[in-house]
Amino acid sequence: MSEHRRLGAEALLDLVAEAFKAEIAPALPADKRYLAAMIGNALDIARREMAVEEEALGFQLLDHFFDDGDGTMQELSRAIRSGEVNDKTNPDLRARLKAHLANELKVRNPRFLGGRGVKG
């Protein structure tokens, strides 16, 4: 549950997720529990994604390898595969990649980070 300053999509999703998990899911038959858990999970991911700007998170990574505003995930992937970007050219490469993964996981599965001792 989060506090909201305006009655927009994020607030509505928050309420829908809360009502679904508290009142609808427990009333469903056993064979629908897995689907209900997936729906609850999807609502949470959508709600967290609305609170961050995913594209901006991507630029946090890309800006270390390309001029400001240039570069895409495809280009960085190609540069890593070709060996143009590697541990020697960028000694902090793994740390940068992990920082980006941590940002993605804060949206997609914050509990995963908690289980690995990383603050979500």
Partner: peptide
């Protein structure tokens, strides 16, 4: 399929574990 969509969001978890082992 919601299951396929949610599975498609999982790569960062395995990538994290792989990088951890490499570290």
């Amino acid at each position: 399929s919601l299951e396929l969509a949610l599975t498609g969001l999982m790569p960062p978890e395995m990538e994290w574990d792989a990088l951890d082992i490499i570290d």
